[in-house]
Design a protein around this nucleic acid. Structure first.
Lengths: 302, 302
DNA sequence: ATTATTGATCAGATAAACTTATCGCATGCC
DNA sequence: GGCATGCGATAAGTTTATCTGATCAATAAT
């Protein structure tokens, strides 16, 4: 079987027309090059070089083989270049999942930075709830996902990105002053509006308001309605239908609506920890580290 | 530096998705394949394969590298195929010289056979006198030449093709009968018409008629005219301006002219030995042998 | 003739690649 | 839980390639 080394030596020989100088240009000795050329000729069953005293001359077929050899070498060089350029983080395709309570607020912050810092990154996004994200990470459909930690999945490694405090969103006409620290007990459980089932944010809010009785309270819609987006929830709060726990990152955006105001919660303030999840065996950890830096920078600044 | 072997192993791994089976398909053991893959990854500085329990999975870049690897392998396979197909004789370009006193008579006999037996042969012909043919063989401009032997050139090997007797061409009204064997002395030296200087045939004819005085004989044109082609010489013979020594192979063709008749010469009949000349170091001797067979077959039959 | 150049050849050293055996880890099955 | 199974990584030892350095043969130039 032929080797790239033989083709490299042949190329050098074609260029120099001289075994000794060709060998020198390959940083080997002349017998080594002679042997490789001989092996190549023997394998191909063709004489590539006409050894003439004082001058070596590629045969007709030798020239053609050398030309084709250059093609092979060029393709292999491309391959190496490709790999080594791609070795720099965040280039090429990366499939990223993100939970719905995060996507519309975080993505606008990070996508511009990602695009400017890593123009060769082709990000493919998928927005869905935590459970399917985890499954898709495990199956390889996703490279990673941004979601709330902890997960408690054995095969999944995670990286902390930032903490996201919860605020209590109430109608603007709520009697409590803006600087009032609300306690969990102060939340009118019967008026709590939440996302539909499956959203981690719903579970986190419920965990905080642990005293809330299971099952829908009579005469309320909050528990049973199950909004599919935080924006919907906020519209309902603005409409005076109830209150909700909303992450800081979302509040920053939704605060534009003057019919709503946000109240901080008593220490220890509840919140969620946002992180990046990926297969423990993933080879793209350098990518994830770079991505994490961008997220941290964008969230801190924005 | 990467090797074709590594690319072959990677291709097998990509196909089988399993180190053990990939190794088996390469007729090596699994550790050998693992090592080559690891070396490749290390050189490229990229993780190509995500080792997951129960399943190996090429990474995004691994797939791309494998794809490019296939390109490289395909190019190298083409190279080998090319060489091995071209290993059969008389394919590709072959530059062949031929002397003018042979070309118009021999080529029509051999070219059809060459083309039908070796359709992949691309013959490049050059018709000129012996001296430039030899020089061009030495310089590599020609692969070989068909001409009259012997040559007495140290760097040139030759192969006998066929012997070509000389006949005496005389006007049809020459008093000698067709079956008369002419002796060298019977040739009217003053009426001898020859090719111009530089043609080997001229020298051979002169050597045969060794008694001919040097320098043009007064009142004759034969020696000084120096025709540039045998056809011209024959036209002059037909016109009654003189006689000439003509090779059998040419006589076969020129005999169509009824104004000329050919007389055989006394034993030992003079003639020339036609052969193929080539660089002693030429790698295409198999080609020349095949060419020689064609020539011998065509001349014998035709 | 003599010397210099050039590629081939040979023996020994070195490096690469392979094989066998073993390990570690994860999974699945009583 | 304990144990077998499958798979890839690792280690040790051996074979195979490959290289170097010295030398040889042929040729060309002096």
């Amino acid at each position: 079987m032929i080797t790239l080394k033989q083709l490299r030596y042949l190329a050098a020989l074609a260029r120099h027309g001289h075994f000794g100088r060709a060998a020198e240009s390959c940083a080997i000795t002349q017998p080594a090059l002679s042997m490789q050329i001989r092996d190549l000729e023997q394998f191909l069953g063709v004489t590539l070089v006409e050894r003439r005293p004082g001058e070596v001359m590629l045969t007709e077929i030798g020239r053609e083989i050398a030309r084709r050899g250059e093609d092979v070498l060029a393709a292999s060089r491309d391959l190496v270049d490709f790999a080594q350029h791609r070795a720099q983080p965040l280039t090429g395709r990366l499939t990223l999942g993100i939970i719905p309570s995060l996507a519309p607020y975080l993505l606008p912050k990070i996508l511009p930075a990602l695009q400017s810092q890593f123009p060769e990154l082709r990000l493919e996004l998928r927005e869905t709830q935590t459970r399917p994200l985890i499954d898709e990470i495990k199956s390889g459909a996703l490279d990673a996902a941004m979601l709330a930690l902890p997960l408690g999945e054995a095969d999944i490694d995670t990286m902390d990105l930032f903490d996201d405090l919860f605020l209590l969103a109430v109608p603007a006409d709520d009697p409590r002053p803006r600087d009032k620290r609300v306690a969990a007990d102060d939340i009118d459980q019967s008026r709590l509006i939440l996302l539909e089932d499956g959203h981690c944010l719903r579970d986190q809010a419920l965990a905080f308001c642990a005293t809330i009785p299971r099952g829908p309270a009579p005469g309320t819609t909050g528990m049973t309605f199950g909004a599919s987006s935080l924006t919907t929830v906020m519209q309902m709060v603005a409409g005076g239908f109830g209150v909700t726990l909303i992450p800081q990152i979302a509040a920053d955006v939704e605060a534009r609506d003057s019919r709503v105001k946000f109240l901080r919660l008593e220490e220890p303030q509840p919140g969620r920890s946002i992180g990046l999840a990926f297969r423990r065996t993933s080879p793209r950890k350098a990518d994830f580290a770079a991505l994490g830096e961008v997220v941290k920078g964008s969230v801190g600044a924005g």
